[in-house]
Design a protein around this nucleic acid. Structure first.
Length: 182
DNA sequence: CAGCACTAATTCA
DNA sequence: TGAATTAGTGCTG
């Protein structure tokens, strides 16, 4: 594994500082916005996947993606569904299927864990979908915040900020959807 | 083999 | 009715 080619960047968005880590050209981690640049760097690199590696900072890394993420928090709707290839090599087959299915959920919409299990070809595996989402290394780009419980409850969220962040992201998208309808 | 970001059915106020 | 509990569930470490 060419572990030495992993690089990262941190940039400012309307919600705070956002982190990206790429292995060659494939996105391997994202970090949801957090207060300051140094916090973001620490949180991003603290993950076990990256902990023992040298992951140099590169300001213009994945420049286009950076712009899209900034745009997202400005209230636009960039398409993350295909653009950056994603490094899921270390995930299991099922997790890759569900994360791929999750990535197709359109902006402003939600699915339940069981619906996603169906779409991934594993009906009944709702609980396992939860596990897969919990391991999602790239929140936002794979919009795991759009996966909620079948009974209407929020469900969990283990990325930065917990369920509070999940709710905030969903409301952010729903507010925008209201603007464009009518 | 135990533990989950779940769910549908059942049981209690 | 509606909230709380209970089996049942498929995958992962």
């Amino acid at each position: 594994m060419t572990r030495s080619s992993v690089r990262h960047t941190i940039f400012k968005t309307r919600w705070g500082h956002f982190g990206l880590a790429l292995n060659a050209d494939a996105l391997c981690r994202t970090l949801l916005p957090i207060g300051d640049r140094e916090q973001a760097r620490t949180a991003l690199l603290a993950h076990p996947d990256l902990a023992d590696l040298d992951v140099p900072f590169e300001k213009d890394l994945a420049r286009t993606l950076q712009q899209h993420v900034v745009a997202y928090f400005e209230g636009e709707n960039p398409d993350f569904s295909t653009d950056p290839p994603v490094d899921l090599a270390r995930r299991g087959f099922f997790a890759r299927q569900t994360l791929a299915a999750c990535r197709q959920i359109p902006f402003g919409q939600t699915r339940s864990y069981s619906q996603l299990a169906d779409e991934a070809g594993r009906p009944g595996a709702a609980r396992a979908v939860g596990t897969a989402m919990a391991q999602n290394p790239i929140p936002l780009i794979v919009p795991c915040h759009r996966v909620v419980r079948a009974d209407g409850a929020l469900g969990g969220f283990s990325a930065l900020g917990g369920t509070t962040t999940k709710q905030r992201l969903l409301r952010h998208e729903q507010d925008l959807g209201r603007n464009s309808t009518s």
